[in-house]
């Protein structure tokens, strides 16, 4: 497999029930091509946290995924409100999730820390009022 597998998903910002669909599809793709379950789990968790963040905090967005022989690269791109202070957003426990979202079990402020923990490379570019790009790379062991 010298070429990569390129996948693009539209993440619907208005549908909580379908949140996670992109991550679930990537998970089954990785399973199909024989990636280890430990690596798949890291990818699935990191991508789901990013996907659900786009739904909750940015009104949806796009997930662009490239799978290579030795790694997966994920870009989560949205045109939401952006993140004012990325360092603060990365703090475990920091959350601006409203009460109705907390009632669903979100808002612990652990999503971004989880994404950092489970990835090998992690970067956020964000501009207030323009949107947020989250870049993640996970190397297959």
């Amino acid at each position: 497999m010298s070429e990569s597998i390129h996948l693009v998903f539209n993440v619907d910002g208005n549908n909580f029930a379908s949140a996670g669909t992109a991550s679930e599809e990537v998970k089954s793709k990785l399973k199909m091509i024989g990636i280890s379950s430990a690596d798949i789990r890291r990818v699935a968790i990191a991508m789901y946290e990013g996907e659900i963040n786009m739904v909750i905090h940015a009104g949806g967005g796009e997930a662009i995924v490239d799978i290579f022989l030795d790694r997966i690269e994920i870009l989560l791109a949205d045109h939401g409100k952006g993140i004012e202070d990325i360092e603060q957003a990365m703090q475990p426990g920091w959350s601006t999730a409203p009460d109705d979202i907390r009632a669903l079990g979100f808002g612990a402020g652990m999503g971004l820390p989880n994404m950092k923990k489970y990835t090998d490379e992690f970067r956020i570019d964000s501009t207030v009022g323009v949107g947020t790009n989250v870049y993640m790379t996970i190397k297959f062991n």
Binding site: A108, G109, M110, G111, N114
Partner: peptide
């Protein structure tokens, strides 16, 4: 019950005890 705590800490192949009952 906090979903991101579960994602960060629950081991694979575990039983998860919760009172959360929504689709997520």
């Amino acid at each position: 019950d906090f979903l991101s705590h579960v994602m960060g800490r629950a081991p694979a192949d575990c039983a998860w005890f919760t009172i959360m009952n929504n689709v997520n």
